[in-house]
Design a protein around this nucleic acid. Structure first.
Ligand SMILES: NC(=O)c1ccc[n+]([C@@H]2O[C@H](COP(=O)([O-])OP(=O)(O)OC[C@H]3O[C@@H](n4cnc5c(N)ncnc54)[C@H](O)[C@@H]3O)[C@@H](O)[C@H]2O)c1
Ligand SMILES: NC(=O)c1ccc[n+]([C@@H]2O[C@H](COP(=O)([O-])OP(=O)(O)OC[C@H]3O[C@@H](n4cnc5c(N)ncnc54)[C@H](O)[C@@H]3O)[C@@H](O)[C@H]2O)c1
Lengths: 246, 246
DNA sequence: CGGTCCTTGTGAACGAACGCACAAAGTCGC
DNA sequence: GCGACTTTGTGCGTTCGTTCACAAGGACCG
């Protein structure tokens, strides 16, 4: 199915073929590393970093080893240097303009959200199909009509698009984003999107998250004693218990 | 490590030990099944359902097989019956009151969101620490002060809590929710939560999603040709390509 | 009522991810 | 400069998840 992943097996060469599960955790490590840097910590061990991230230290070390050998045995990792390396691997050394389509409840919250800029993302344009929304000023951006989507995306060179429209409109919006040149989409609408090859989609579905929690509520309620731990990783169903630090 | 999962290996007994990966997909199947039911479809094959969900039919069949044998060979699955069975497995036959803490940008959007009720979830109470927010009326709910959290959660019997506060306040809010009796938490704040055993946490982190997309943007941009597909499931890094429809 | 066709359910092979445990590598004290 | 100590990086076994491929089960037709 995939063409040529996994360069050299488990010990794949530096930078090539970082496993999906690892990629999904890197942003978490990065956030913690940045916090450590900000509070003046210059060095951190895999044990400490792993504890802060809620993973086992061996997993963390293996994750980092896919990027290269950036640690010092007997000491740990240099925080600033690791921040740089992880950022580079994730492509955060550059600026990513993003566009948001569907400026309703959720779209407004997203547009107002300050957590983007700090990570190299920049809300560059907002779009909505409703004429009453168009022209509205949200966080120093004017809401633009859908007709402007293609030209503006092209001009900005925006590669990432966020869909915050109702589910029924999502596929149509997605098609227009793709046609305009967007190749990565973050979808908040509860809909399965069909996209051509080469376009990446990630979805955030609140309702699904709640249903998964409901499942565990029911599970823990029915049998009686035994809670139940779960695996780890991005597919980790639920965290159950986590002590320690930071 | 875990106490007694996986009852009988791959062929585990009905209802016992549904794999995490499967549980994470059931809500998606359920949504599609409900849509089919609404449009009058009474029967669906694994092939059709899988296509609508964006998974392989074998995976879908195996997922459903963990719930029992609810299909009819040569025909497919009865939509209404399957909706019931999946709902039951997920614990959606009962009503789940949820509380939201932190009624800022995101909290407002969540409180206004209509997609909850339709799935058996009901926003039962809103809380905020800011005195200026307290008393505000959001979607027929008055925002309550944090002091009310424990008694109200207890009275409502709310088992699910949503955290939409700034990251710095998340752990404290989490502790209070747990102390009040909440055993499932959906966390929107970019923070790793420490919880006692038996409490389930799921996180939704926008910033992480965007960074994963950035990674793939960079990946696809640098090497040149080969796009790159990925696995499937909740841990699926990105969807890449997906044809067809519903 | 028997044959044919269709779709499910699953055994088994494969692959990805995790965790253990340890050797290699470097630091620090003396 | 040497030895003891600390922590990384990773080989290996295990678990979990996905995919293939097919036999078994049932509907439907004649
Ligand atoms: N509000 C939430 O907290 C929340 C939570 C989870 C998921 N969601 C999902 O996010 C999406 C948006 O939710 P919301 O509450 O903001 O809804 P909303 O109705 O407030 O906003 C939707 C916006 O999309 C615009 N729109 C509709 N069709 C469009 C089109 N074809 N092109 C461009 N814009 C279009 C509408 O004009 C509106 O402004 C929905 O799919 C919802 O299910 C929302
Ligand atoms: N706005 C978004 O679109 C968005 C997107 C992704 C993630 N987030 C995250 O969601 C969280 C909320 O974001 P927001 O934009 O709504 O922020 P916000 O500042 O608008 O709202 C935060 C709310 O939490 C309340 N609060 C603060 N401390 C509290 C405490 N100890 N107890 C109870 N309430 C408290 C504040 O009074 C405020 O009303 C943040 O962690 C943010 O990183 C927001």
């Amino acid at each position: 199915m995939t063409v040529s992943r996994r360069a050299t097996g488990p010990g794949r060469a530096r930078g090539r073929g970082v496993p999906d599960a690892t990629v999904a955790r890197l942003p978490l490590y990065l956030r913690i590393l940045r916090a450590l840097a900000e509070q003046g910590t210059s060095t951190v061990s895999s044990e400490e970093l792993a504890a802060a991230a809620g993973v086992k230290s061996a997993k963390l070390r293996k994750d980092l080893s896919y990027l290269g050998s950036y640690g010092t045995r007997g000491v740990g990792y240099d925080v600033a240097y690791l921040v740089y390396q992880v950022s580079r691997e994730l492509g955060l050394t550059q600026d990513w303009p993003i566009v948001i389509v569907g400026i309703g409840n959720l779209g407004h919250a997203l547009a107002n959200y300050g957590g983007f800029a700090s990570r190299g993302f920049r809300v560059a344009a907002l779009f909505d199909a409703d004429p009453r929304r168009v022209g509205e000023l949200v966080e120093d951006h004017e809401v633009l009509p859908m007709g402007e989507l293609a030209p503006v995306v092209g001009e900005l060179g925006a590669a990432i698009g966020v869909i915050a429209t109702p589910a029924g409109a999502a596929q149509g919006v997605c098609d227009r984003l793709v046609a305009a040149g967007v190749r990565s989409i973050l979808n908040f609408a509860p809909a399965v999107l069909a996209v051509p090859d080469g376009v990446a989609v990630r979805k955030v579905d609140l309702s699904i998250e709640l249903q998964i929690l409901a499942f565990h509520e029911q599970r823990n309620a029915v049998p009686g004693p035994v809670p139940d731990g779960a695996g780890s990783g991005p597919g980790e169903l639920v965290q159950t218990g986590r002590r320690s630090r930071a």
